[in-house]
Design a protein around this nucleic acid. Sequence first.
DNA 1: TTTCGATTTGTAATCGATTACATTTTTTCC
DNA 2: GGAAAAAATGTAATCGATTACAAATCGAAA
Lengths: 339, 339
Amino acid sequence: MMDERLRKPRIDDVARRAGVSTATVSRALATPDQVKPKTRAAVEKAVLETGYVLNVAARNLRTNRTHAVLAVVPDVANIFFSQVLRGISDTLHQHGYRLVIADTGNDPERERDHAEFAQAGWVDGLLLLNGRLLPTPPGGRRRLAVPTVSLCERIPGSDIPYVETANREAARAMTEHLLQLGHRRIGYVCGPPNNILEHDRFAGYRDALAARGLVPDLALVRPGDYTLAAGEAAASAYLALPELPDAVFASNDAMAMGLIRGFTAAGLSVPEAISIAGFDDIEFAGAYNPALTTVHQARSEIGARATTMLIDLIEGRQPASREVHLPAEIVMRDSTRER
Amino acid sequence: MMDERLRKPRIDDVARRAGVSTATVSRALATPDQVKPKTRAAVEKAVLETGYVLNVAARNLRTNRTHAVLAVVPDVANIFFSQVLRGISDTLHQHGYRLVIADTGNDPERERDHAEFAQAGWVDGLLLLNGRLLPTPPGGRRRLAVPTVSLCERIPGSDIPYVETANREAARAMTEHLLQLGHRRIGYVCGPPNNILEHDRFAGYRDALAARGLVPDLALVRPGDYTLAAGEAAASAYLALPELPDAVFASNDAMAMGLIRGFTAAGLSVPEAISIAGFDDIEFAGAYNPALTTVHQARSEIGARATTMLIDLIEGRQPASREVHLPAEIVMRDSTRER
DNA sequence: TTTCGATTTGTAATCGATTACATTTTTTCC
DNA sequence: GGAAAAAATGTAATCGATTACAAATCGAAA
């Protein structure tokens, strides 16, 4: 008796109460129009009375589906990724899926662990927000992989479908913008060397210069690692040069902000003395002082597109395209001006 | 034959290959030291050979545990929450749990949906990063709730354990800091009116003034909603006053940045003409121009503490405390100075 | 009214692991 | 070497749903 009230009600408790079979209860809940309205009502009543909640594990086991998708993210706290996640989350929700996030903290071991767990039927699909992970089939042999899409960074040498920003074209456009403003000595602050995004962006920078018959002055190309500090360091390096650049294009916004801080701390004002451009259009780029000219990536759009692709894959449809390059947009604000 | 190679191997395939029973395989994998080293090796070999991966759904069903925790977040793209998530994710990982994130997009319907699903055995515990959600027991009657902890905002009128920043004390300390710098006409830009955090922060502001026998000048208290635009609007409002405040304390960083932008746009320099302080110490507060004086919340620490509490609850231990107020720290940077 | 097809419902097998309990093997100790 | 204790392994029930197939019910046409 007391047991009855405490034990979690199961589908057969509902069935008994409604005077039908478990099959009917299951159908009344999952496919209501396969069931006579009258029985359906009886079942719904019984569900309410018993406080029945379906057991997800049992359903997953039986149907071999979870209606969940795993996103493997290097760092949820990174504002860039978190906005992509927003696009993912919304799109999944629209299609009746749930989101499981694995924050790997940039730890390859954790990445592998999660990718492996994904194969265990823990989710129906996999979104990789990181170009590094090459999910080796579990056990290193057979490939029974879960549908997978990568985004933000394509995975070099793999045939996993992906969605990313057209980095090269965007960097080229931004560099052209600076050239059009009359700048000629244009500096560039790099991202981490073996990053594929960085590779594309730097190529775009050189494309634009080459189109005008210019070659990059190596003294104006500074190393960096996407941190504010790297931008500040680059600013010091430029200040030590006999002649300052007219403008500097940083391959992300944090470094652009570092440059601005470095230059203003030295008494140079931006954009009067020097123009600075960034890449990413992170949330505070527009709020910065001065507001940052930068490349806007449609972050949630990237997430949304990749998710649509993944759902197509999961549900056995052929996605419209396996390689999507989303155009980015130059946002002109106050950190650049005509020479 | 071909089937053999394509079908996903199950535990009994491994058992057969290793020449043991399924029970032994299960033990060899889950509790290796309950099994003779020799058999264990045989099982491991068979696992590799077959490419076996355990079926999560089956295990979850049988054990009635998932080793996953659901975090219900109003907005993953919000930098504040995403850093809390980082603390959550790390702590969970340390204890062998996984993180499931439900981004509700501030939609109460989605919140309820997720909370309900959590009861379905989809996760072992629930973390609520939002003060609004009062998870009604499913069906509105029986309460067989999953262990739950709320964080960031306590849930008024509920007995759910929580972890939050000591907002009132922190706001009081920041206001005192401004008073000590010699400021007397101290403005305050509010957050959304019925937000419990805001309530606490405003109370702290008044506490500090009251301690000096001052009463807040209502003309200096401006409404806001945690957005940059609200800060800019407040700046305009202050500029329209016959006499400017000496300093303004904004109840979050975005609004503080808006104030700085508004004042500098009007030709006033910060902190020379007016001191500005924020609250939260978001990622770019230190990178701002000028670097923002603000209240640092230990965001990942909040996540970590709440997670520890939740795991205690899940594993049947009594958590050390059911209400944790973490002290915050004033970070003095360049946006405030002596009068 | 009867019959046939369509609709609705029920019976029972099934998904793939874990684990209580029983049984066998190994170790310990006199 | 043998008895008792400890360790290792095996047998089979079990978790809670879904669904193929069979059976029952219903409605419409003849």
